[in-house]
Design a protein around this nucleic acid. Structure first.
Ligand SMILES: [Mn+2]
Ligand SMILES: [Mn+2]
Ligand SMILES: [Mn+2]
Ligand SMILES: [Mn+2]
Lengths: 216, 216
DNA sequence: TCATAAAATTAGGCATGCCTAATACAATAT
DNA sequence: ATATTGTATTAGGCATGCCTAATTTTATGA
């Protein structure tokens, strides 16, 4: 019988994303991201470890090579789905996450390839994250959070590390999207907001938000 | 929490399709179509009845209005998915069933509408079956099986009641697809094959196969 | 070092949906 | 009417993945 891997895929995908922030991923962070209770995650992580997909130490959870490879496949399907949704079906970037989160588990390798081909092998998802190629290779650009720029510095937005639709809609309304040039006008002290200039307009941006926007 | 309706959807979809052949659907027929054991179906049917989606009498299983409405929604998503796969992604008609069978459970009403819109509101799936509209309305053409045509009669293929990829591939290789005109040259006696003429070529077709091809 | 707080796991359950084996129910044919 | 045959259900299990409550482990800070 055909196994349903969607929960496994969901976990691996979350672990992959979270480890980009901080390496061994804590089960509590994972639970929060997956919107599950901690014991559920504890248990599932144990099963994933048993299948050789993750390594679980006192520090937290790491993906094994096999787990990483599977995670990248899921992420490829997720990001290709997002592109299909925006480029072909006309969705906005804030509307695609949940849809893609379901599609990613339903797409065969053939469909994955056909989407990539039909769209001209896109390099990134609508949020600027790289789409792994069929063999799991992906190019990570060297970036830093917008929040780390100093006054008068500017950067080009590479990607936005955010999934919340409301936040994405807000950012789009300010024109804060990949490939856009942002200039930091001022940085308020004591963790205060940044004053940024985008396409001729000025906005005050909280540090929290600015840290999600990665620039080069 | 978000319920996973995919099994319910699968059952309702199967019941809907099977009842087009013979009205109250037997649990054994349903089990066969779903590739499950009979007791699994017995049990699930009981649950569906409990939810008011089917009515279960001695004769077999029937959809309630609510069940029928839900079934048509799933079928709409299935057929729209098939069209997306063939028209946008370049799949062949024999490659789309399984893929669509997974996609149909992952597609939101918004995506469903977007697909329909992007494709110019197609009326049928690649196999010629009608796509219900958003309100569940669908136009069934009056058709008869090709196997019921007499010698020298001709008809235009409306749809093909078949899901098996090998059979579909075979039919496509003979040019037996919706909108194609077929002429029955001869009908061999005693349930023997039909000799048909399609686009200038002659083929012998088994009765079984011919009964799946519906013409007008 | 010892108390307290935070993080993680264990224990015990539950819902869903599948299975096999056994049993009950129908329809036929003798 | 009764034996046979096929259809359907009941009984009893199992796997998966989630939950709450209780407990254990680890970290922190007085
Ligand atoms: Mn997902
Ligand atoms: Mn994305
Ligand atoms: Mn399906
Ligand atoms: Mn079809």
């Amino acid at each position: 019988m055909e196994a349903d891997n969607s929960r496994t895929e969901e976990y691996l995908e979350s672990i992959y994303k979270l480890q980009e922030e901080q390496h061994p991923v804590s089960t509590s962070r994972l639970a929060e991201h997956l919107k599950l209770q901690a014991p559920s995650v504890s248990e599932m992580v144990k099963k994933l470890a048993g299948k050789g997909l993750v390594f679980h130490s006192e520090k937290g959870v790491c993906l094994t090579d096999e787990g990483k490879s599977l995670a990248k496949k899921v992420i490829r399907r997720h990001r290709l789905s997002e592109r299909l949704l925006t480029d072909v079906l006309g969705f906005k970037w804030d509307e695609v996450h949940d849809e893609a989160c379901r599609l990613e588990h339903a797409i065969s390798p053939e469909m994955e390839d056909r989407i990539a081909e039909s769209l001209g092998n896109p390099k990134t998802c609508p949020h600027g994250h790289p789409i792994p190629d069929r063999d799991g290779k992906l190019i990570k650009e060297k970036v830093k959070p917008l929040s780390e720029l100093k006054a008068r510095e500017k950067g080009i937005i590479v990607n936005v590390f955010e999934e919340d639709p409301k936040m994405l809609k807000y950012l789009a309304s300010l024109g804060l999207m990949p490939d856009v040039c942002v200039k930091v006008e001022e940085v308020a002290p004591f963790g205060g907001p940044l004053i940024v200039c985008v396409a001729g307009s000025r906005y005050a941006l909280g540090r929290e938000v600015a840290s999600k926007i990665k620039v080069k």
